[in-house]
Amino acid sequence: MKKTALLLLALLTGIVNAQTNEKSLLWKISGNGLSKPSYLFGTIHITCDATLSDKVKKALDNTEQLCLELDMDDASMQGQMLNSMMMKDGVTMKSLVTEADFKIVDAFLTNNVGYSAEMLNPVKPFMITTMLYPKMLGCEMQSVEAELMKIAKTQNEETIGLETVAEQLAVFDAIPYQEQMNELVITAKDNMQRDKTELTQMMALYKTENVEEMVAFTEKSANVMTSKYSDILLKNRNQNWISRIDKIAKSKPTFFGVGAAHLGGEQGVIVLLRKAGFKVEAVN
């Protein structure tokens, strides 16, 4: 009897997980006490083409507010981010590398962001990496989140966040500064070639709408910031979001937009919402 129960549990778990194999960035959330459906959409934070599909626009029409990872309408957000950019305990980039490597990073940053490593010395290396994204992209940078916000604004709907700026940036205190700096040195030494290749591959993968492959891609990344610390960057945050999504969706029909890599996998938002009692279906 016990073996039968375990087998049944394994089969049911397999079914729950297998259902995420459908290729879609947009998912309908219903059941579990919701009076009207909400929607879950996988975004890409930077891209060359942030055009929204008709099905996404329709889902925005059918909801009453937009919820992103952060409340990007918050006027205080920029100030909060600036306050969280510095490394703690007096750590600097110069203290994390050899003199030779610091000179390489210094020349690279001066050339690509217009600020020397000396000027940016106390800033978290990951934050400096984000300054390089426009250069890595090779096109005019666009944002899916910005496009979602434009529509929400025209519909006179509020934009809210799943987590605070402090919560999101605390992630980069949890990832060792040494690891962050090691990756920045690699980026400087190969003049962003590795990062450009991975970003191009991710943008192409995003167009396939295969959320499972996106999770696998991040876990295999050559950049240890992405692959080694996926628990900190993705899984832990996914767990934290479920009760918040539950509360928000029950307050009013909501369009949730989070990074697409958060959706798939056994610890992804889709599976976790199903385990919490919601029906989550791909919209195609």
Rank of each mutant, 00 (worst) to 15 (best):
S24G: 15
P176N: 06
A222T: 02
I128R: 01
N156S: 15
G114L: 03
M225W: 00
P134H: 04
V113I: 15
I128K: 01
I245W: 02
A18M: 15
A18V: 15
M181K: 05
Q78E: 14
P125S: 05
I248W: 01
A174M: 11
F256E: 02
L6G: 05
Q201I: 11
V211E: 00
M85Y: 04
V16A: 04
Q168Y: 05
L70R: 01
A100G: 06
V97D: 02
D106R: 02
N111A: 07
I245Q: 02
V215S: 11
N32R: 11
P122C: 15
Q239M: 09
Y39I: 05
D101M: 11
D101W: 09
S95K: 15
M202K: 03
T98Q: 08
L272S: 04
I104G: 13
G138M: 04
T226I: 06
L120R: 03
T187H: 11
K252P: 03
M119Q: 15
L12P: 00
M1F: 13
E147L: 05
R194C: 02
A152F: 09
K247Q: 10
K279C: 03
P122E: 08
Y177S: 05
L137Y: 05
Q142G: 14
N121L: 07
N240T: 14
I270F: 02
E99P: 01
I232F: 03
V283E: 06
E179I: 09
K135Q: 12
D190W: 12
M119Y: 13
P125R: 01
K275C: 13
I232R: 01
D49W: 10
V165E: 11
K250S: 03
Q180M: 07
I128L: 13
P176W: 08
E157I: 08
R237N: 15
L233C: 07
L8P: 12
I44M: 02
N32Y: 09
V283I: 10
S76I: 14
L205R: 09
I44H: 00
A107Y: 10
E266K: 12
F126K: 00
L273G: 07
S230P: 14
F217G: 00
C48V: 12
S38K: 01
E140Q: 06
G277I: 10
E212C: 09
S221R: 01
D54L: 08
N284I: 10
K124Y: 01
D49V: 14
K58A: 11
T130D: 12
G138A: 14
K250W: 06
E157C: 05
